[in-house]
Design a protein around this nucleic acid. Structure first.
Length: 637
RNA sequence: GCUGGCGUAGCUCAAUCGGUAGAGCAGCUGACUUGUAAUCAGCAGGUUGCGGGUUCAAUUCCUGUCGCCAGCUCCA
C-alpha cells in the first residue's frame, strides 16, 4: 500500500503506508529532517513521528516558523516540569505549562516548597542534562480511566481533575524518560533540540484562572532554538527596562507618586503637566474638527443618580462616596451621567443627531491595590471620553468615524495597535435584536477598516458589545486604550428620546468611546514608545539655549527671551560650566534642540542648533529657528 | 484582593558571621572662563519605610503593617 502526500508547493509524492512526516522530510533532505519538529496534516497540527495511513496534504513545521517555535517552547515547558519533578519529586505537583509569546511557563502546586529565583540555576542545569540525554518524546493514547488511574497513582491530583473534565474517551500522554504528562501535543521528536533556555521569573497564578481556586506557583521562562537568539532576546529585555516609563518619568521629571498623597494618584511635575496639556490641546482640536461638542460635568454627583444609572448596583465597590448636608454624593468613576443630563436638557430632533459630547473627564476608581502600575493603571485618571447619540440608521457611520479617528491618531504617534471585538456575554441585558444590530455594526465597521482583529466571544459588557484597541508597552504587555462600546441601558434608564420625521418619540442609540483612553495610561505608553525622546510638537522643552562662556551670556539671554516670546518652549543654561557639560545634561533630558552660542554666533547674530542625534544644523537667526520649530509642530513631527 | 520578592542619603548602589552606616551622582560653597555627552576642591546630607519582639548589641534575626516590583484575578 502506498499513500500520496501533497506538499505545500503542490508537488505530490508516493510513500509507503505508515510513513511519518519526519521520514518525508528526510526523503526531501537531511537538513530539513533535522529542523522538522512537527507537521500539519490536512491543516491539523500533529507530531512529526505519527504514521500517515492515508493520502494527505502535508506541511512540515520547522523551527524557523512561528508554529514550530510554539511546539518547541511547549516541549521546553515539559522539560522544565520534568526537571522540577526530578529535583523535588512528590513535594511538587504539575498542572499546566503552555507556550506563550516570547517563551513559556509552567504552573506548579506545592504545599511544602516555595520556588525562588535562587534555584533557577539548579533547575536550568537539570534541564540541560535531561535535554542532552536526547530522550525521544513519545506520544501515547490511553483511555480516560486508565489515565486517571495513572496520574492518581503518581499523586498528580490536578492532572486527574483535568482529565475528568475532558469530553474525550481517549486522552494523549507524552513521555520522555521517566516523565509523563497529559498533553494534547504536538511535541518535538526529542529533547535534544532544547539547548537555549532561561528561567526568568516566578509568580503566583490561580488554578484555572479563578481567584477562588488554589494559588499555584508559575515559573516563567523563555527558550530559543539557538543560543544566539536567546542572547538577543535577553539583551532586548534589558534595553526595554531602560524605556520603563516609571524610570524615565522620574529621570525626565515628568511625574511622581507619593505615599503621603495616596497610592495610585499621579502627581504631575512641570514638564509632565506640560506634556499632558499639549496632548489635551491636541485632543480638543481634533475633536472639534470632527464635529464633537466639548462639555464638562461635575466631579461629584448625587448618589441617587448613580442608582438610576445602575452604577450603584454594578460598580459601587470601585467608587468613592462622600456626604454633604446629609446628602450622599458619588465621585464619578465614569463621565456618562452628566452627558445624559445634557442630552435630556431639551427636546431633541432627529435633525440634531448625531450629537457627540466630548469631555476630558477626570474619574476616580478604587482599583485593587495589586493592579496599580505606574501611570498605566492608576486610581485617578482623565479620559478623552465622548458619548455619541444617534439614530439606529446612523450607527454604522458613527462607528466607522470613530475607528477612522483612532487610526488617524495612532498614525500621528506612530503606534501599532491591535483590535478586538467582544460579543454578548452570558449575563446581559437588552433584546436579541439590539445585540444583533450593534454587534453587526461593530463587526461591519471593523471589517471595513481592512485591518486584522480578534473576536473575543462573550467578553462584552453586560450592556452592549465593544471594540477594544490595545497598545503595547516596552515589555510587550498590552494595555487597552481606545474603546468603542454600544450601550442599551442608559438611554432607557434616562428615558432619552428624539422626535423623528414621523413626529413620534424614538430612543436614540448611544455609543461610549475613548480614543487615547486615559491620558495617564497613554502618556505612560507614549514615554516607552519614544523612550522619552518626544517629537518636537510634544517635547515639554523644545530647546535649551547655552552659552560657551560668560562673554555671550547677555546675547544668549536675549535669544532666550525672543524665543520664549515667540511661543517656543525653551530653557536657558547660562551657568559657568563647560559646553560639553551643558550638552550632556540637555542630551540626558532628551531635549530636541540645543542652541549653542559662542563668540561666532554672537558676532553673526545667529544660533547653532545641535540636535539629539548629535548633528548640527547650519547657523541661523533665532527667527529662522522659530519657523523651523513651528513647521515641525504643525506637521505633528 | 491573592502569591512571591524587595524597602539603606534627593537618585543609583555598598556594608563579611548580628558589633549602632559608606561611595558616586545630585545639592551647597569656593576656584577655574571653558566650542558639542561629566573641571577641581571642600562642606553638608541617614530615627536603615513604620511599629513591636529576640539579644549585652539589630540595616542584618522574628513578627505585624505600609509601600514598591513580577504575575494572577479584575480593568482605561
Amino acid at each position: 500500500m502506498a499513500v500520496q502526500i501533497e506538499l505545500p508547493d503542490g508537488q505530490k509524492k508516493e510513500f509507503p503506508d505508515g510513513v511519518t512526516p519526519l521520514e518525508v522530510a528526510r526523503a526531501i533532505g537531511e537538513k530539513l529532517a533535522r529542523e522538522t519538529v512537527a507537521a500539519r496534516v490536512n491543516g491539523k497540527l500533529i507530531d512529526a513521528t505519527v504514521p500517515l495511513a492515508e493520502d494527505a496534504r502535508l506541511e512540515l513545521v520547522t523551527l524557523s516558523s512561528p508554529m514550530g517555535l510554539d511546539v518547541f517552547r511547549h516541549s521546553a515547558a515539559h522539560l522544565m516540569a520534568h526537571a522540577v519533578k526530578d529535583l523535588y519529586g512528590d513535594e511538587v505537583q504539575v498542572t499546566i505549562g503552555p507556550s506563550i509569546e516570547n517563551g513559556f511557563y509552567y504552573d506548579f502546586y506545592s504545599e511544602k516548597h516555595i520556588f525562588t529565583p535562587e534555584e533557577f540555576d539548579k533547575i536550568e542545569k537539570r534541564m540541560a542534562e535531561l535535554a542532552a540525554a536526547d530522550m525521544p518524546i513519545q506520544r501515547e493514547v490511553v483511555g480516560r480511566d486508565e489515565a486517571i488511574e495513572l496520574f492518581r497513582s503518581m499523586g498528580e491530583e490536578f492532572k486527574v481533575e483535568l482529565i475528568r473534565d475532558l469530553p474525550d474517551e481517549q486522552v494523549s500522554l507524552y513521555r520522555q524518560g521517566d516523565f509523563v504528562d497529559l498533553c494534547r501535543g504536538p511535541h518535538l521528536p526529542s529533547t535534544r533540540f532544547l539547548k537555549a533556555f532561561k528561567l526568568t521569573s516566578v509568580a503566583g497564578a490561580y488554578w484555572r484562572g479563578n481567584e477562588k481556586n488554589a494559588m499555584l506557583q508559575r515559573i516563567y521562562a523563555t527558550a530559543f532554538p539557538d543560543k544566539k537568539d536567546l542572547k538577543v532576546y535577553l539583551n532586548r529585555l534589558e534595553e526595554a527596562k531602560k524605556r520603563d516609563h516609571r524610570k524615565l518619568g522620574k529621570e525626565l521629571e515628568l511625574f511622581s507618586f507619593s505615599e503621603e498623597a495616596g497610592v495610585g494618584l499621579p502627581i504631575w511635575h512641570p514638564k509632565g503637566a506640560l506634556l499632558r496639556t499639549l496632548l489635551e490641546d491636541f485632543e480638543r482640536k481634533e475633536h472639534l474638527r470632527r464635529g464633537y461638542d466639548i462639555v464638562l460635568g461635575p466631579q461629584i454627583l448625587r448618589t441617587e443618580l448613580w442608582m438610576k444609572s445602575g452604577h450603584y448596583n454594578n460598580y459601587r465597590e470601585n467608587m468613592y462616596f462622600t456626604e454633604i448636608d446629609e446628602q450622599g454624593y458619588g465621585i464619578k468613576p465614569m463621565n456618562c451621567l452628566a452627558h445624559m443630563l445634557i442630552y435630556r436638557s431639551k427636546m431633541r430632533s432627529y435633525r440634531d443627531l448625531p450629537l457627540r459630547f466630548f469631555e476630558l473627564g477626570t474619574v476616580h476608581r478604587h482599583e485593587k491595590s495589586g493592579v496599580l502600575h505606574g501611570l498605566l493603571r492608576v486610581r485617578e485618571f482623565t479620559q478623552d471620553d465622548a458619548h455619541i447619540f444617534c439614530t439606529p440608521e446612523q450607527l454604522n457611520d458613527e462607528i466607522l468615524g470613530v475607528l477612522q479617528f483612532v487610526r488617524d491618531v495612532m498614525g500621528i504617534f506612530g503606534f501599532e495597535y491591535e483590535m478586538e471585538i467582544s460579543t454578548r456575554p452570558e449575563k446581559s441585558i437588552g433584546s436579541d435584536a439590539d445585540w444583533e444590530r450593534a454587534t453587526q455594526a461593530l463587526l461591519g465597521a471593523l471589517e471595513a477598516t481592512g485591518q486584522p482583529f480578534e473576536i473575543n466571544a462573550g467578553d462584552g459588557a453586560f450592556y452592549g458589545p465593544k471594540i477594544d484597541v490595545k497598545l503595547k508597552d516596552a515589555l510587550d504587555r498590552r494595555w487597552q486604550c481606545a474603546t468603542i462600546q454600544c450601550d442599551f441601558t442608559l438611554p432607557d434608564r434616562f428615558d432619552l428620546t428624539y422626535v423623528g420625521k414621523d413626529g413620534e418619540k424614538h430612543r436614540p442609540v448611544m455609543l461610549h468611546r475613548v480614543i487615547l483612553g486615559a491620558i495617564e495610561r497613554f502618556v505612560g505608553v507614549l514615554i516607552e514608545h519614544f523612550e522619552g525622546r518626544f517629537p518636537v510638537w510634544l517635547a515639554p522643552v523644545q530647546a535649551v539655549v547655552m552659552n560657551v562662556t560668560d562673554n555671550q551670556a547677555e546675547y544668549a539671554g536675549k535669544v532666550f527671551d525672543s524665543l520664549r516670546q515667540s511661543g517656543i518652549r525653551v530653557e536657558k543654561d547660562l551657568r559657568n560650566e563647560k559646553l560639553s557639560f551643558k550638552i550632556r545634561e540637555a542630551q540626558q533630558a532628551k531635549v530636541p534642540f540645543m542652541l549653542v552660542i559662542g563668540d561666532q554666533e554672537m558676532a553673526a547674530g545667529t544660533v547653532t542648533a545641535r540636535m539629539r542625534d548629535g548633528k548640527n544644523l547650519p547657523p541661523m537667526s533665532s527667527g529662522d529657528f522659530c519657523s523651523l520649530v513651528r513647521r515641525e509642530c504643525e506637521a505633528y513631527k
